[in-house]
């Protein structure tokens, strides 16, 4: 069953088109990723889901309701983790959750029970009376996610949940998000961390300049655009062009990223062997499994093609 559907969704800000006619659906209980570089239109897309930003044209439905005229009902059933932390700095940790619960008309007793459970789930129990300002970046992020769960939502929207966190803090957040997903919460997640997308998302769209470049499961996208392996060659001074011409029949594509030539071989070992037989020396070779990052680089063209 689909919980969110967008049809020709457009968002303009004073003449600037941030989202340019996109179509997608999110299924119940999946983790749906929106992947894209800075300015791709990820935040604009999710903001429309909770009515923070009116849609310019097209159609956007959440839980079968049109966002343009059911904002309140929709928001009552969503949890939102915005890109910028907006915890209430004037309130302490537990108070943040309780006051927020008030906005949902949750009775005080229920709110307190839930808040204490959430603090425990996110490892913040001993911080309940701390000032929000005194929390570390990772704790603030966890508190923001805890806050988004106070109304026990079926869907939670996370706009770059781990940007700016150190690797350990990031893994803690991922672990919690996986637990939520296994409890049946639908997750919508924007990110530009490829690892995050491949670790968490069942299905994703890759966006750039307001349009969707492709969509599918991480494995599908990797297989479709790159194949199973890539061969990186530290090519030094402009040997790339020559290599590409010479091995055209053995590769299905390539990309130049800085000094690195990334080849998408039909058969990795064979290509590596052929390269090593060449008279030239290269800085390094690396044959590795293809990742979402390769797909992302290829599709968004971040990296210069020879």
């Amino acid at each position: 069953m689909e919980v969110i559907s967008a049809r020709n969704l457009v968002k303009d800000y004073n003449g600037l088109r941030a989202v340019n006619g996109i179509n997608f659906t999110v299924q119940r209980q999946e983790c749906f990723g929106i992947l894209g570089p800075n300015g791709a239109g990820k935040t604009s897309t999710v903001r429309m889901m909770f009515g923070f930003s009116p849609i310019t044209s097209g159609e956007l439905k959440v839980l079968g309701l049109d966002v343009s005229d059911h904002a309140r009902e929709i928001k009552a059933q969503l949890g939102v983790v915005p890109q910028e932390n907006n915890l209430d700095l004037d309130l302490k940790v537990l108070q943040n959750l309780l006051v927020y619960a008030g906005f949902f008309n949750i009775p005080e007793r229920t709110a307190r029970e839930r808040a204490l459970k959430l603090l425990e789930f996110f490892g913040l129990s001993d911080k309940r009376d701390a000032k929000v300002d005194h929390l570390s970046g990772g704790m603030k992020r966890r508190l923001t996610i805890a806050r988004a769960l106070i109304n026990d939502p079926d869907i939670i929207i996370l706009d770059e949940p781990t940007t700016g966190l150190d690797p350990q803090a990031r893994h803690t957040v991922w672990q919690r998000l996986r637990q939520l997903r296994s409890r049946g919460v639908t997750l919508i997640l924007t990110t530009h961390y490829l690892e995050e997308a491949s670790q968490l998302c069942d299905r994703l769209i890759i966006m750039d300049h307001g349009i969707i470049l492709d969509e599918g499961t991480p494995e599908f996208l990797v297989g479709k655009h790159v194949g199973s392996e890539v061969l990186e060659v530290g090519q030094g001074a402009g040997a790339g062009e020559m290599l590409i011409t010479q091995f055209q029949s053995q590769i299905r594509g390539h990309l130049v990223v800085g000094d690195n030539l990334v080849l998408y071989p039909l058969n990795g070992r064979q290509l590596l062997a052929s390269l090593q037989e060449l008279p030239q020396q290269f800085d390094h070779y690396l044959l590795r499994p293809a990742t979402l990052e390769d797909v992302f680089l290829k599709l968004t063209g971040r990296g210069l093609t020879v």
Binding site: K75, A76, E84, N86, L87, D88, D90, N105, N151
Partner: peptide, 14 residues
């Protein structure tokens, strides 16, 4: 600076 409005508007508050 505190983005308090943004936080409130993401709840059923208009």
């Amino acid at each position: 600076f505190q983005k308090t409005f943004q936080a409130m508007v993401a709840t059923p508050v208009s």
